[in-house]
Amino acid sequence: MSDVPLLSIDGLTTHFRTERGVVRAVDGVSFDVRSGETVAVVGESGSGKSVTALSVLRLIADPPGRIVSGEVRFDGVDLVTLSDPEMRAVRGNRIAMIFQEPMSSLNPALTIGMQVAEPLNRHRGMGWPEARRHAVELLRKVQIPDPEKRLDSYPHQFSGGMRQRVMIAMALACGPRLLIADEPTTALDVTVQSQILSLLKALTRETGAALILITHDLGVVARYADRVNVMYAGRIVESGPAGAIYARPRHPYTRGLMASIPRLDGDVGRRLVPIPGQPPDLAALPAGCPFAPRCVNVMDRCRVERPPLAPVDPTHSKACWSDV
């Protein structure tokens, strides 16, 4: 792991213009990712975790969405300022993405071989025969049995888990420096989930690529992530090494999440402690801290002034006025 971050997101703000007003989906998000590191972005639906990932890859449809401000420095270059052709040369090449839905993210009309070979043809200028030979190796790497035979199959002939392996093979084709996996296993069965995540972790370890893991599952984060960013209402509310965040969560939302999930090793017969209320409407955010209406430690200041993400120690930060 080097000291210079591979990816440095600084003040990223993405808005969507809707009939109901401006939705502040990502509202000033900053974090770094270093080579070889697995960084989790964890949050519930509407927290802005997926829009953060899509903004990094400039995959926000405009209109209605737009990156309003902020920088996304990757290898020293601000991706936000790149032209569309320059950005296309980065996507699927040096940064690759794995989506949640292995069913709808593959083209049903093209063979698996075509789809895995495409990034090699496009970004590496490889001829199709050579790209196909590489595709066999990639499918073998993601542990698809009989890769030579499966090359001419179509997505519908694969199970959900196998399709997600194909997605990983496609993402790895050009040897990306950064992989972004957005809920990569949410649509899969439990035993297959763990196969896919373990494979993803092993492959990034082998290639030294960095991995951004976007998930709502605190168990998955604990098993695979080095660093964690907890998002709520478009902002990072807590950030730090996984060990520190789980041992001593500092933000009331993080603490609330941990108390509300049932665990395999939890006390039996004890009621869960839910977080009261509902997540906020991103088109009508309250003044001050967006978590204040649901917070057990809320103070007067929280309702008027937004807390910045500030360090509690050199590696761990929280956006909260309370000292609890």
């Binding site: 888990g161 196998m162 069965d189 373990s198 604990a222 665990r263």
Partner: peptide, 27 residues
């Protein structure tokens, strides 16, 4: 046993000690 092993516990220390190995194949 495989199902229980596949479910991560939200605690990085426990997860490190578990040294999880996924079972092979699909249903």
């Amino acid at each position: 046993q495989a199902l229980l092993g596949a479910i991560p516990i939200p605690d990085p220390e426990i997860e490190k000690a578990r040294d999880f190995q996924p079972i092979v194949g699909e249903v």
